[in-house]
Structures are given as C-alpha cells and as structure tokens.
Nucleic acid binder design. Structure first.
Ligand SMILES: [Mn+2]
Ligand SMILES: [Mn+2]
Ligand SMILES: [Mn+2]
Ligand SMILES: [Mn+2]
Lengths: 144, 144
DNA sequence: TGAAAATTTTAGCCTTGGCTAATTTATTGG
DNA sequence: CCAATAAATTAGCCAAGGCTAAAATTTTCA
C-alpha cells in the first residue's frame, strides 16, 4: 500500500513545475513572451512567489531567465510543457465526455492531470477515440 | 483562469488530512485501533512525521489522542473519513471500469481523489450505475 | 526628458510536510 | 520482575511554496 503514497508524493513534487512550464509555453505561444506578472496573474500568487518558483525551475534546468527579462523555457522545459499540455487536454476532454460541464472540467482537470499515469492516460484516449469499452464488446458480439 | 489554481491549492491543503482520517478509520475498522506505527508504515513516513501531522489534525478537530495511546477520530473526523472513503472507492472503481488495471487504478486514484468535485463524482457514479452516456442515447433511440 | 507607474527583485517571515537522532514510555519474554 | 525491545515523543534540521514590505529597475507618457 505504501508505494502508492510514495507515488502520490512524487507527483506532487513535480506539480508546480509542470503547471509553470505549461503556462510559460502558452504565454510564449499566444503573446510572444512570458513575464513574471503574467504568471503571477495566471496562478493568483504574488510576484515574489513567482520569483522564488522560477528560480527553482532555473536550478532544475527547465527555465532560462536574465534579470528583468522575459522568462523562457529550455528544451527540457519545452518538452515537459508539451507532454503536460497534451495530458491536461486529454483529461479535460475526458471529463467533458463523461458529462461534466466545461467549468468544472477545467477546475478538476487542473489538479487531476498530475496524477494520471501513462496507463490511465492511454485508457482515456482510447475511450475518447473508440468509445466506451462495453460498446466495442457489444459490437463485436453483434458481428459474430 | 486563476480561480482554478486557487481551487487546486485548496484541494492540496486538505489532502493529507483526508488520507489520514481515511486510514485511521480503516485501521480502527479492521484491527480495532490505530497506532502511530500503523500510519507510519501505511504512508511510508517516519514516526516523527506521523506525530507532527497528527498534532495538526488534533488542532483542526479531526483527531483525538492521548500520550502513548491509540489514535482516534472525532465525529467530524469520522464524517470526513466516510465521505473520502466513498469518493476514493468511486474513483478507483471508475478507473477500473475504463480499463485500467487494479494496481494502476489504486496508485492513480490515491492522488486523483482529492481533486474530484461533487459534479465529477456524480458523473462517475452515474456511469458506474447506468453505463456510458452514449449507450443510454442508443437505447432510447432503439426504444422509439 | 524626467517623473510616475509598472515590473522585478530582494529580504525576511510563515506553515506544511518531510527527515534524523536522542529520549522517554510501554510492552514483552526469559 | 526486570532487561531488552518496541513504540512514541521531542528537538532540531530542511525544502517547498506561500506571504508582505521595501528597494531597484524598466517602461511609459506628459
Ligand atoms: Mn496543467
Ligand atoms: Mn495543474
Ligand atoms: Mn494533487
Ligand atoms: Mn489520497
């Protein structure tokens, strides 16, 4: 039972990093660059908190900064951002597919995304693409 | 966009409390009482960490303790434990229903559970009971 | 251009949730 | 019954992730 909690703690440790690289990539994509204020507004934290966090991401090799300059991603950061964005979108779409309204799906998926294994992500993608498992079985039986 | 992250941070703040009350209720149910060692083993943390955390849960009115005595729940704690256990089980069952293996479902649900809103929980329960939304539509169409 | 506003950084504080090491208290077996 | 073992507590440490307040820098615009 305990490896389960170790997994969950590991997920949490990378959670903020994942949200930051995803947000930075998004700001760069839609408005050309990402500034501290953007992240502060986006996460509803103070600029001081952004500074602390960004410093840690730099230490971890995900982000590049220079004093008073925009915040950019390393190639490692971009790669992580891409993976997280895709996973986030799948989780969000899946929640909507099971009948959750868009606002709730957006809120829930923001937390859920970080705890989705490759296996569960694959299961969600499969259902989004092929429909519910039982349907396939039913169709197979029909085609017998 | 930022209320979403405020929600996620609030979920995290109560996450450990939720896991602890759930575990305490479980130990009481299956072996009559819950001791520090039980929780330390269960969460893969040191006894010192359990002590810290339990002290905070006492401050928050979820847990009762006396020195060198077993750990118990207040009625507030029991109520929370019940709610969390049910939610946890629904999430776990739902993951299995979408084709995830039991081991992965157990691991993923441990983190996911804390980020599931009432709305999403209801959607999962409905599907576990009634099947996938599209099926109902198909059946309705068949019955026309 | 130069003063005001916006942005970024720094310093210092807090809580949570981890840890180790040492001590204290309970439990158990010979 | 008491010594060894087990369990619980205490003390002191750390990093993450929040905050406020103040200082420094950059940008804007009258
Ligand atoms: Mn995300
Ligand atoms: Mn997120
Ligand atoms: Mn989480
Ligand atoms: Mn959990």
């Amino acid at each position: 039972m305990d490896e389960v909690h170790i997994r969950t703690r590991r997920d949490h440790a990378s959670e903020i990093a994942e949200d930051y690289v995803e947000a930075i990539a998004e700001f760069v994509a839609v408005k050309g660059s990402c500034r501290s204020v953007d992240l502060a507004e986006c996460f509803a934290v103070t600029p001081a908190t952004v500074n602390n966090t960004v410093a840690r991401l730099v230490r971890n090799g995900l982000v590049i900064t220079a004093p008073y300059q925009p915040i950019g991603l390393t190639s490692k950061g971009r790669k992580l951002a891409l993976k997280c964005k895709e996973r986030h979108e799948v989780v969000n779409a899946f929640l909507i597919a099971i009948g959750v309204d868009a606002g709730t799906a957006a809120a829930d998926s923001e937390g859920i995304e970080h705890h989705i294994s490759k296996t569960t992500l694959a299961a969600m993608k499969k259902i989004l693409a092929d429909g519910w498992p039982a349907i396939s079985i039913a169709i197979e039986k029909q085609n017998e």
